[in-house]
C-alpha cells in the first residue's frame, strides 16, 4: 500500500466496489484485530457510543452472531432486528422500515436481505453506513474477505493460487464475492458444478468454468464447497441430493486430485455428506473453523474502517 492510501468507503455493498488496496487494507486491519480475540479481556473501546443495527430479513445465526460479536468487542451498542420481529411481514417495504430505523440514528446498519441490490437501495435511503451481510444472489462481501484472509493465512499469500469453487454458483452470493475477490488479488478461480447451477457470463466476474469437478480441482491450492440449498429442489436443477453428492460432492477422491497441501473451505452451514465429505470437513486440511474465527476479525476491521477510522 502506498502511504497516501486511505480507505474511503462509507458502505460495504460488494467486493466489486473494492480496489486491491481496499482489500489489502481490510485484511491487514483484520489481522491486527485478530489478536484482540485471543486476549483474556476481548474488548477495545474503539467504537464506544456508536450504534449498530443488525437488520436480518433471512434467518442466519452465524453471520448475525459474527457481526454482533465483532461490534461488542469494539464496544459498540448493537440492536438486532429480525424478519419476524420487523413489520415488513405486514407489507411495509424495506424503504419504509429504513426510514423508521433512521429515527434511531444508527451509525451503521448491517443488512441481510433476500433481494439482490437491497443493501444498495438501503444505502441510498439512509444516512448511516450500510454493510451488506448478503443480498439475494448478489454479494456477501464480508464472507469473501474472511475467505481471503483465511487463505492468505494458510498459504502465505493469494496471488498465483489455484482456487476451485464447487457447487451452486448460480444462487451463491458467497461464490460471487469470492470469485471477484480472489481474481482481483491475482488468484486463478475455477468453478464447477451441475451446468444448471453455473450462471451465464460468470467468466466476466473472473472465473473459468469447468464441466468436470475433477478437472476443476486438479492441482488446486484451495477447494471451496458451496452449500446446496435443499429448498430450491422444486426448480429442476439436478435430479436428487444423492446424485448430487455422487457427482458434485467434494469427496476424498476429489480432494486427492488437488495439491497435497490444498485446504478445504466451506461457508457453512454444511450439508454433511452432500456437498462435502464429513471426514474432509473435520480433517486436518479443513480451515472451516479458521473461517469462523477470521469472520469476527474481518467484521471488526470493516466496522473500524467505515466508522472508527478518523
Amino acid at each position: 500500500m502506498t502511504s497516501e492510501y486511505r480507505f474511503t468507503h462509507k458502505h460495504v455493498l460488494g467486493l466489486a466496489d473494492f480496489s486491491v488496496e481496499d482489500i489489502q487494507a481490510v485484511l491487514q486491519t483484520a489481522e491486527s484485530f485478530k489478536e484482540i480475540s485471543s486476549r483474556s479481556i476481548k474488548k477495545v473501546p474503539t467504537l464506544r457510543g456508536k450504534t449498530i443495527i443488525n437488520f436480518f430479513f433471512e434467518p442466519s445465526t452465524r453471520t448475525r452472531l459474527s457481526f454482533e460479536v465483532a461490534a461488542k468487542r469494539m464496544s459498540a451498542d448493537t440492536f438486532n432486528i429480525s424478519n419476524s420481529g420487523s413489520s415488513t411481514v405486514k407489507g411495509e417495504t424495506l424503504i419504509d422500515t429504513a426510514r423508521n430505523l433512521a429515527a434511531m440514528n444508527p451509525d451503521c446498519i448491517i443488512l441481510r436481505h433476500p433481494r439482490s441490490g437491497s443493501a444498495r437501495l438501503l444505502a441510498e435511503h439512509i444516512d448511516a453506513s450500510v454493510i451488506n451481510a448478503g443480498d439475494g444472489t448478489h454479494e456477501h462481501p464480508s464472507q469473501g474477505l474472511l475467505d481471503l484472509m483465511t487463505v492468505r493465512e494458510a498459504k502465505g499469500g493469494i496471488a498465483g493460487l489455484k482456487i476451485a469453487i464447487i457447487g451452486d454458483i448460480a444462487h451463491s452470493r458467497v461464490a460471487h464475492s469470492n470469485i471477484i475477490g480472489f481474481s482481483k488479488m491475482g488468484a486463478f478461480v475455477t468453478v464447477s458444478g451441475p451446468a444448471t447451477l453455473i450462471p451465464p457470463g460468470i467468466e466476466e466476474l473472473g472465473a473459468r468454468v469447468s464441466r468436470s469437478v475433477m478437472e476443476a480441482v486438479d492441482g488446486a491450492d484451495v477447494i471451496m464447497a458451496l452449500r446446496i440449498q435443499k429448498e430450491r429442489q422444486q426448480d429442476p436443477l439436478f435430479p436428487s441430493l444423492r446424485e448430487y453428492a455422487k457427482f458434485f460432492g467434494v469427496s476424498q477422491n476429489v480432494a486427492d486430485a488437488a495439491s497435497p497441501e490444498a485446504v478445504i473451505m466451506h461457508p457453512g452451514p454444511i450439508n454433511r455428506g452432500v456437498e462435502l465429505d464429513p471426514k474432509l470437513a473435520d480433517g486436518s486440511r479443513s480451515v472451516i473453523l479458521e473461517q469462523v474465527t477470521n469472520g469476527v476479525a474481518v467484521r471488526m476491521a470493516l466496522l473500524y474502517l467505515i466508522m472508527g477510522g478518523d
Binding site: 466489486a16 439482490s116 441490490g117 443480498d135 439475494g136 444472489t137 448478489h138 454479494e139 448460480a170 452470493r173 460471487h176 450462471p199 451465464p200 457470463g201 460468470i202 467468466e203 466476466e204 466476474l205
Partner: peptide, 8 residues
C-alpha cells in the same frame, strides 16, 4: 452476464 453480476 449482467444479470449474473447483479444477482438477478
Amino acid at each position: 452476464a449482467l444479470a449474473t453480476r447483479l444477482g438477478l
